[in-house]
Design a protein around this nucleic acid. Structure first.
Length: 871
RNA sequence: GGGCGAUUAGCUCAGUUGGUUUAGAGCACUUGGUUUACACCCAAGGGGUCGGGGGUUCGACUCCCUCAUCGCCCA
């Protein structure tokens, strides 16, 4: 059979993905097996695949494929998120390019555009995930805004309201003047900006030339000032107590109040108070019963209440008010000042703290339960360091503003009578019934009720995701709680924390057992990959170039849980090279001519016994890594074993001479080993392993490596493995001599071994083959005229017919002797310390004594060899 | 300003409750090798006073304190 010398992924990937889909291997139905469930972090419905998705979904696919091969009923539920504000912003922008203003559209008209956009772009990202090999049960694809999910969201709102956990109130919220909606605290990103600090003089009422000076970065807000505040402990301003000042330009009289909030060190120690436009000022205003003057319109322009600059944008006013203040003699000085400004995560607009009527969800009780669950490891975080981050947030959690002034989302199920009285119900019909009962007016109809205009925050649907994606009657008890959640640590508060809260609140138990946090994917310079920077490669291009398996391996090779991944094209390249390495090992094995009449050589028997044990050890190590969610380490283990141990040692050891046939027993054993290696690799490299597995042996229609069993380890033969390592050292020693003496590999050498009583000959035949030894002799005395080296306590001699460079040999031996003596000194220092021998565990002391014995034996051998050469 | 975390080879990272490590891996690098599965390869090799200082301990990369630098989160 002719097999190409390079693996070509493009030809095989689509073929096997289709095969898996056709055979229904991704599907899951409840049965008697133990379930293993993952729900996908739903990407934005109109989003495109980026490197973060690649990493995240590769890890999920590895976990789900492995669970499937371990006999679990593996169910990976895919889906998308309607992403309320993000999608609405995109639709608004598109309408703008068509010359349509959102404000001119009715709610229904806008929603028609939004659905059209969703149908046009929705689900592309899921198709892209298929290229990656994602083994999701696609029949289960959910959307946060589809019927069942919407029902769950609405019912949940009603339930929470009836429990008294949802309330409506006027609060200071983060207002996005561009999207014209409130956003949650988590949707505000703080950006460092260079701004200015303005020192303004406020004239003291009733005096001619007395002033107080305040410092502010926002001079335009003075028009909404309702007080000036000083710290009661600040003696500098004791004379101001009880006085009033005049707001510059408008000459409104406001009081001087005292509050310990004021930082005496900052600015001038005097603070202007604008309760309508700053959260801290708002709180101070509440404490002191101050009036609140809202000088801003929803779009960020100044309102009538400002009296001046009405209708102009706040940033324009900031420019224009300064010369006015200067003219009026109120501007003392201006300093440069760096501060952080809150911006909308979605629109980028500078957020304005604003008083408005919103719906809130009480968090404190739910947060406590969810905090405990994580702190006592009922829900485990990987890595655990995120527990601290989580705790800090949960202990300071504030009520969740769940209303948004948008169209695209779940409309809040609150229905108002004209009187303002409202009723919360899943449907308007239920609301009518409630209204009838409450008012005693049985003539009420749906026409008398108006539904709340606001929609719910997008996370109010995502937080139900692990339960809402399952059939509530037949399935949810089987699949829920899910097993593992894989997500970026950037949404630990948005999403992870809230899912945990929802899990306990509605299901009485955690939504998932483990959370695996991935890091951010960054470029070589450490910048987060983003569309704006244009520093993110297109995942589809990458997969076309390096193969999906190559990209998967590349991403995994250096991405520990929670650690950022510095992505560079050398990574998928390495993955591609590994795929090719496996491919060529396959070529080698399939290329051998098999002859069942040949006897199995001794060196092959030895190699098989060793690699059999090596595989057991590998399986155990991989299992251990997975149990700790060290997925990169698990991959690296298989990677190294395949490349170093299987290819470079095992295959080289059993390889027959050029164009010679291989015996049947060896072929059979080798194919079995290969098969096990492939199954260990399959979760990481699904396509390549399937392609090879299908050809390695005759397979029946419908068979697949993805539904085969993960190999299980036999009890470990550690002694055997150690003996092989000694043999490797000996081969290495001989290779080094060849290099130093310039002896080509094809020239056979003789080897004398001074091994002592404990010498293990188990792998001598492999040694002879791998080092190309003509004759290997066990000797009881040092060989004269030979180059020597040691492996453990064995001494090896390669006779050189007097071609020895004595000085070079001596130098080598002395260097080794010095190292051994240094090592022994360290050991002896410990052993001669009575307190060490007395207080260290016995096993530790025994180990040190063994080290001492070995080092002493080596030193004796080296000293003798040196003495002999010095003669 | 508050909190969390990091700092180990040129780069990216391991080092799993302090003791098989005078520190490991992958990549990169140097040298040698190819009619023999793979140059997307093989072999050998160099390279680190574990960020600085102090402490606890018989023993510290590992625990504590402190300083420095960086990153992230929150206000």
């Amino acid at each position: 059979m002719e097999i190409a010398s390079k693996y070509s992924p493009n030809a095989t990937e689509d073929k096997w993905y289709k095969y898996w889909m056709d055979k229904g291997f991704f599907k899951s139905e409840p049965d008697e097996r133990e379930p293993y469930t993952i729900v996908i972090p739903p990407p934005n419905v109109t989003g495109v695949l980026h490197m973060g998705h690649m990493l995240n979904n590769t890890i999920q696919d590895i976990l789900i494929r492995r669970a499937r091969m371990m006999g679990k009923n593996a169910c990976w539920v895919p889906g998308t998120d309607h992403a309320s504000i993000a999608t609405e912003a995109k639709v608004v922008n598109r309408l703008k390019t068509q010359g349509i203003d959102k404000a001119d559209l009715s709610r229904d008209e806008f929603l028609n555009h939004a659905w059209a956009w969703t149908e046009e772009h929705g689900g592309i990202i899921l198709e892209q995930l298929k290229k990656l090999g994602a083994s999701c049960d696609w029949d289960r694809t959910c959307f946060t805004l589809d019927e069942p999910r919407s029902k769950a969201v609405i019912d949940t709102f009603v339930t929470l309201y009836e429990k008294g956990l949802i309330y409506r109130g006027i609060r200071m919220v983060n207002w996005d003047p561009e999207a014209l909606t409130a956003v949650s605290d988590e949707e505000v990103v703080y950006k460092e900006v260079h701004s200015k600090l303005y020192y303004l003089n406020y004239k003291i009422e009733g005096s001619e030339d007395e002033f107080v000076t305040i410092a502010t970065t926002r001079p335009e807000t003075i028009l909404g000032d309702t007080a000036v505040c000083i710290n009661p402990n600040d003696e500098r301003f004791a004379h101001l107590r009880g006085k009033r000042v005049l707001v510059p330009l408008v000459n409104r009289s406001i009081p001087i109040i005292e509050d310990e909030y004021v930082d005496m060190e900052f600015g001038t120690g005097c603070l202007k108070i604008t309760p309508a436009h700053d959260i801290n000022d708002y709180e101070i205003g509440m404490r002191h019963n101050l009036e609140s003057i809202d000088i801003l319109n929803d779009n960020g322009t100044l309102s009538e209440k400002a009296e001046l600059f009405v209708g102009k944008d706040r940033f324009v006013v900031r420019e224009e008010i300064v010369p006015e203040l200067e003219k009026a003699g109120n501007l003392l000085k201006v300093e440069n000042y760096d501060n952080k400004v809150g911006c909308s995560e979605r629109t980028g607009a500078v957020i304005e703290p604003k008083l408005s009527t919103q719906w809130f969800l009480k968090m404190s009780d739910m947060a406590k339960v969810a905090l405990d669950a994580v702190m006592n490891d009922e829900v485990k975080f990987h890595p655990a360091k995120f527990k601290n981050v989580y705790r800090h947030w949960m202990e300071n959690v504030k009520d969740w503003c769940i209303s948004r002034q948008l169209y695209w989302g779940h409309r809040i199920p609150v229905f108002y009578l004209e009187s303002g009285e409202f009723f919360v119900a899943s449907t308007i019909e239920d609301a009518v019934e409630k209204a009838k009962t409450a008012t005693g007016n049985s003539a009420l109809t749906v026409a008398d009720l108006t539904q709340e205009e606001d929609v719910l925050d997008t996370w109010a649907s995502s937080w139900l995701w692990p339960m809402s994606v399952f059939d509530q009657n037949n399935e949810v008890d089987y699949y829920y709680p899910t097993n593992d959640l894989v997500t970026g640590h950037d949404i630990i508060f948005f999403w992870v924390a809230r899912m945990i809260m929802a899990g306990y609140e509605f299901k009485g138990t955690f939504p998932f057992r483990n959370v695996y946090f991935t890091g951010m994917v960054r470029d070589k310079q450490g910048r987060k990959m983003s569309k704006q920077l244009g520093n993110s490669p297109d995942p589809l291009d990458l997969m076309a170039t390096y193969g999906a398996d190559g990209v998967r391996v590349g991403m995994l090779l250096c991405s520990p849980a929670g650690g950022d991944l510095l992505f560079d094209e050398s990574l998928p390249e390495q993955g591609r090279n590994f795929a090719n390495k496996i491919w060529n090992a396959f070529r080698l094995v399939k290329g051998w001519e098999i002859n069942n009449s040949i006897e199995q050589p001794e060196y092959v028997k030895q190699a098989i016994s060793w690699f059999d044990a090596k595989l057991d050890q590998t399986i155990e190590i991989v299992n251990d890594h997975f149990s700790k969610y060290r997925i990169s380490d698990a991959l690296m283990t298989v990677y190294t074993v395949f490349w170093q141990e299987f290819s470079s040692w095992y295959l080289e050891a059993i390889k027959p001479a050029y164009q010679q046939p291989l015996d049947g027993a060896t072929y059979k054993a080798t194919v079995e080993f290969f098969d096990k290696m492939l199954r260990l690799l399959h979760p990481f490299m699904p396509f390549l392993t399937e392609e090879i597995w299908q050809t390695l042996e005759d397979r029946k229609e419908g068979e697949s490596i993805m539904v085969s069993d993960m190999p299980v380890a036999k009890p470990l033969n550690a002694d055997l493995l150690d003996k092989f390592e000694i043999m490797k050292e000996a081969v290495g020693g001989i290779r080094t001599i060849r290099k130093e003496k310039n002896i080509p590999m094809k020239d056979a050498l003789n080897l004398d071994v001074l091994g002592g009583e404990n010498y293990a000959a188990d792998f001598d035949a492999v040694l002879v083959k791998m080092a190309n030894i003509r004759e290997m002799t066990m000797v009881s005395e040092k060989t004269e005229g030979a180059v020597s080296f040691m492996a453990r306590t064995n001494e090896y001699f390669v006779p050189m017919d007097g071609m020895i460079d004595v000085e070079a040999e001596l130098e080598k031996l002395r260097k080794e002797l010095a190292h051994q003596q240094g090592f022994l000194n360290g050991v002896m220092k410990k052993l001669s310390n009575e307190r060490f021998v007395g207080s260290a565990p016995e096993a530790v002391v025994a180990k040190e004594r063994q080290k001492q014995a070995d080092a002493e034996a080596k030193i004796k051998t080296l000293t003798e060899s040196i003495a002999r050469l010095e003669k």
